[in-house]
Design a protein around this nucleic acid. Sequence first.
DNA 1: GTTGGTACTGACAAATTTGTCAGTAAAGGG
DNA 2: CCCTTTACTGACAAATTTGTCAGTACCAAC
Lengths: 111, 111
Amino acid sequence: MAVSKKEISECPIDTMLSVIDGRWKGTILWRLSAGPMRTGELRRSIPGITERMLIRHLQELVRDGILVRREERTVPPCVRYSISKYGMTLVPVLEVICRWGRRHQRLAGSH
Amino acid sequence: MAVSKKEISECPIDTMLSVIDGRWKGTILWRLSAGPMRTGELRRSIPGITERMLIRHLQELVRDGILVRREERTVPPCVRYSISKYGMTLVPVLEVICRWGRRHQRLAGSH
DNA sequence: GTTGGTACTGACAAATTTGTCAGTAAAGGG
DNA sequence: CCCTTTACTGACAAATTTGTCAGTACCAAC
């Protein structure tokens, strides 16, 4: 039985990573840290993601209290996602992660 | 075809996370940030990990230049892993991740 | 000569995650 | 009527990651 990172773990590193665990969650949060976005807008801004995966991840992030989903009951529907107050506590962490990533993305393998 | 996080991605968040991508890598690095350790010592310090997974992750981290493997050619063998100079650049990032994790691990679900 | 301890491999099974594809709803326009 | 748009579901296939299990090598001690 595979032990997924989603299970509760003693390790605080795992606790944090489990929140971003998912192929596209880091990127989604990164995009949303610039401000609220509509579903389709978000999808178009992330190359390679499929609508299915985007929605699955969005739902998990909403369930975990990281994102807020606001829906205008119009036709066609208009749904906007934004980072919750709780999710905002993650942003500085993402910034540090992002800074490391930017600094090392081209250098991979040169060690 | 599933797109693994290990592939090169434009997103710097993904670049960083791909280095820690693996069920136990964050924890392994966290343990080693306290100082070099032998394989078995590391295994005993991480509840739930199997020897197989530990070794697989260690090998990947060595391959990626994050860890250094030092072997004393004795019998029985004695192998010690430590964080490389390059890997050290990750430690501050792990610290921030860990701090968030510690602060929020019991509060999960309370939002 | 059998056992013990350490680090590690290979083959394979199980679990999990991701991706694909075909729908649904609902109002408005043609 | 049929088609469009937007957000979303369900069922299922494919890929990937994890876990299990049985070995290997080596020398020393018993």
